[in-house]
Computed example of a mutant assay.
Amino acid sequence: MSDAPAFDLDGTVCVITGGSGVLGSEMARAIGERGATVVLLARDETALEEASETLTARDIENLTIPASVLERAELEAAAEMVVEEYGRIDALINAAGGNHPDATTGAETSFFDLPKAGLEQVVNVNFLGTVLASQAFGEYMVEQGEGVIVNVSSMAAVTPLTKIPGYSGAKAAVSNFTEWLAVHVAQEYSPAIRVNAIAPGFFLTEQNRYLLLDEETGEYTERGQQIIDHTPQGRFGEPADLATTVCWLLAPGSAFVTGTVIPVDGGFAAFSGV
């Protein structure tokens, strides 16, 4: 990877957990168009097939593997499959994650009534899933002596958002883990293995669309308007906004960047509200 042009991903092999989701599939398209071979991991086989068809239509080499980020054996089997198919693993994007209604407070659910199972699900898929995937795929990077891991944190890790204590806490753990792992692999194994994260601001996804937009009118909900009012650029993010930042973090042009969490938030973190 080090001999490639600064922003070229030609010939690299990149694994994306949560690769069939809105954000993961956009990242896959962007890095694939820059020459990478893309491996998509997700639990939903139908969604994987649809994402693969989209990539194939763009002449992007891809492989899909059904796997859960919470099952170490499935992740290890997936890593072996990638190496058998392509000979190496150059990059890992930990994009699997999300919130759950059972870990969300509201008019009918107080913080004190949040069920343990809902909180565990959110913490596990966001944080533990990132750790387990980094173990399974990162081990091959250690053998190679080089590689890149990009985690997905959140603005909720910087300033906890109301209603979602599990998600905010899990993403804060992802940011902390990103810094820890960057130092660990550089000192213990190879400085050519880099670990960074992106911290998205507010993007419209299938999970949050109708928390931010009124389903009938298409107007901002009260929560959506609050977010827009605190985002200097005055809009929600688009998947391409994340994808271009990810491409930079994967490419040789960011070779001296590790242990960072990059906000992609339209200025949300910089604005005090005054």
Rank of each mutant, 00 (worst) to 15 (best):
V195P: 11
T244D: 03
E45G: 04
S110A: 08
T162P: 14
K171R: 11
V152T: 13
A173M: 14
V69I: 15
G35V: 05
G234E: 09
T105K: 09
T178H: 07
V257L: 02
G267H: 12
G19W: 01
F268D: 01
G21L: 10
V158I: 14
L250E: 13
A199F: 01
S154M: 03
M1F: 06
I149N: 07
K163T: 11
E85Y: 08
L132K: 10
V174Y: 10
L92I: 12
A243E: 01
Y86M: 13
A133F: 10
F177M: 07
V38L: 10
A170E: 04
D265Q: 13
T17N: 15
R58A: 15
P101M: 05
L40I: 07
A251R: 09
T260S: 15
G267D: 02
E139W: 12
Y210Q: 01
L212I: 06
P165Q: 09
L114S: 05
Y86D: 05
V38Q: 07
A57T: 06
F236I: 05
G259R: 13
T12R: 06
S153I: 04
A255C: 00
D265E: 15
A30W: 00
G169T: 11
I193W: 11
L128Y: 11
R209Y: 02
V39I: 10
T244I: 02
T221A: 01
E76W: 07
K171I: 06
E108Y: 08
D90M: 05
S168H: 00
T205W: 06
E50N: 08
I93F: 15
G21M: 11
A240P: 03
H230E: 12
V264S: 04
A197G: 08
F111D: 01
T245N: 02
Q144T: 02
G32F: 02
G118V: 01
E76Y: 03
A243T: 07
F202D: 13
E216I: 06
D44H: 02
E216A: 02
W248V: 05
A255I: 07
T56V: 07
I16N: 14
N151V: 10
A91R: 10
F7Q: 03
E146Q: 10
A78Q: 09
V152Y: 08
L128I: 01
V257H: 11
R88A: 12
R34K: 15
S134A: 14
P5Y: 09
Q225R: 12
C247I: 08
A30Y: 00
N94H: 09
E219D: 15
A255W: 11
L55A: 03
